[in-house]
Amino acid sequence: MSVNVNRYKCGYCGACVGVCPEGALELVETWIEVDNTCTGCGICAKICPVGALVVVK
């Protein structure tokens, strides 16, 4: 389970990092990194203001 970040859409605001229960996301300056603790819960994808995140099974 993971999330896919559409980096052409992402506005690197960090909102998704703040809601991830696992701490799987990190905002590094202008891009989002996802680590292997992601459970695919989809919370980040729900709250992203631009819809740049998609859960991948």
Partner: peptide
């Protein structure tokens, strides 16, 4: 950790 209701997007 912020729940979805705890964040204004």
């Amino acid at each position: 950790v912020l729940k979805p209701v705890d964040i204004e997007t």
